[in-house]
C-alpha cells in the first residue's frame, strides 16, 4: 500500500499549473525531501529483508551457514503440511468470525454514541480505552479472568459451564481469542463508524422522519446505505489485521490446547526461532501474497469511494 501511494500525483499533472516551473521544481524537491528518508528506511527495514526472505524460501537454509537452492520444494511441502493447513484454516475462520462480530458491535456502539444521549463524550472515551492498551497486556488480563475469575464464579454459583476455563476447552478455546480480539479491535472500528455517522447530513433524518420513518427504518434505509463504504473498509482492514493475529493468542492459549489455536504468524515465527527458517519463509511468502491481494482489494475500494 505504502509503495503505491507516491504514484497518485500523476493525475494532477493534467491540470493547468498556476506556479512557474522554477518554483515548482523547488516544491518537488521539498516534497521529495519529505519522502526520501521514509523511503530509505522502508527499503532498508522492509523491502530488502522481505526480498531476502523470499530468496531464502527457495533454499534449504536454517538461517545461518551454507545453503542450497532447492527450487519450489518448500512450497510443495507447505501445501501438504497439515500443520500449515490447520493454521491457515484456523486463522481465516477466526478472522472471519471476529471481523463480523467486531463490526456488528462497533456499528451498534457508534450508532448509540452518536445519538442524542447524555454523557456521550465520556462514554466514547470509555469505549475507546481498549485501543490504547497493548494486546499482550489485554491477553494476560483476560487469561487471568478466564482461568481464575470465571471458574471461581462458576464454582460459587454452581454454574457448570463456567467451572472449567474456556482456554482449556479444545473445541471452544478459539472463542476466547475471538472475544478478546474483538474487545480490542472494536474501538478503532467504532471511531471510523462515528466519523461516518457524523458525516451524514441531518436533513436526511429530518426528511425521513417527516415521511414517517421509525428509528429502525431510518437505520436500515438511511444510515446503512450511506455507511456501506465505511463498512467495507472496516471489514477489509479488520480482516487483514486479524489474519496477522499473534500477541493475543500467545498471551491467551499459546496455540493450545494442543495445536487448536495456532495462527499463521505463530507458525512463521517458530520457523525463524527454531531452525525451520527457509520453510517458514516460504510460508511467509504465501502469507504475504494473500495479504497483498487483500490490500489491493482495499485500495480499489477506497479509490472507488473517492471517485464518487
Amino acid at each position: 500500500m505504502t509503495l503505491t501511494s507516491p504514484a497518485k500525483p500523476r493525475s494532477d499533472s493534467k491540470r493547468p499549473m498556476p506556479t512557474p516551473p522554477a518554483k515548482r521544481r523547488r516544491f518537488e524537491a521539498t516534497y521529495l525531501g519529505f519522502l526520501v528518508p521514509a523511503l530509505i528506511c522502508f527499503t532498508i527495514a522492509i523491502t530488502v529483508p522481505a526480498a531476502m526472505g523470499i530468496f531464502f524460501s527457495f533454499t534449504d537454509s536454517v538461517g545461518f551457514g551454507d545453503y542450497n537452492l532447492i527450487g519450489l520444494a518448500n512450497y510443495a511441502a507447505l501445501f501438504t503440511d497439515p500443520a500449515i493447513i490447520g493454521a491457515y484454516s484456523f486463522t481465516i475462520g477466526f478472522a472471519l468470525v471476529t471481523v463480523l462480530l467486531t463490526n456488528a458491535l462497533a456499528f451498534l456502539l457508534a450508532v448509540g454514541l452518536t445519538a442524542q444521549i447524555r454523557a456521550r463524550v465520556a462514554l466514547r472515551t470509555i469505549f475507546v480505552m481498549p485501543m490504547v492498551i497493548s494486546g499482550i497486556v489485554i491477553a494476560y488480563v483476560f487469561n487471568f479472568l478466564f482461568s481464575n475469575t470465571l471458574p471461581t464464579v462458576g464454582e460459587y454459583f454452581g454454574i457448570e459451564f463456567l467451572k472449567s476455563s474456556l482456554l482449556s476447552n479444545p473445541d471452544l478455546a478459539w472463542l476466547s481469542i475471538v472475544i478478546v480480539s474483538a474487545w480490542q479491535a472494536i474501538p478503532s472500528a467504532m471511531l471510523i463508524y462515528i466519523a461516518g455517522l457524523m458525516a451524514i447530513p441531518y436533513d436526511l433524518y429530518e426528511a425521513s422522519s417527516l415521511d414517517g420513518a421509525s428509528a429502525l427504518g431510518q437505520l436500515v434505509h438511511v444510515t446503512l446505505p450511506l455507511m456501506i463504504g465505511y463498512i467495507g473498509i472496516n471489514i477489509i482492514i479488520g480482516f487483514k489485521n486479524f489474519l496477522g493475529a499473534y500477541d493475543v493468542i500467545v498471551g491467551l492459549t499459546n496455540g493450545g490446547p494442543g495445536v487448536k489455536t495456532r495462527s499463521i504468524a505463530m507458525t512463521i515465527f517458530t520457523g525463524f526461532e527454531r531452525g525451520d527458517y527457509a520453510y517458514q519463509m516460504a510460508n511467509a511468502t504465501v502469507f504475504f501474497i494473500i495479504s497483498l491481494i487483500i490490500a489491493l482489494l482495499q485500495l480499489r475500494l477506497t479509490n472507488r469511494g473517492q471517485a464518487k
Partner: peptide
C-alpha cells in the same frame, strides 16, 4: 526440533486427545 509443536501435542494428550492420532 521445536519446529514440531511437541509441547502442544503433549498438552493436547493430557487434556484428553487421542494418542493414536497425535
Amino acid at each position: 526440533p521445536r519446529t514440531i509443536p511437541f509441547e502442544n501435542y503433549m498438552q493436547g494428550l493430557v487434556t484428553g486427545g487421542s494418542v493414536e492420532q497425535t
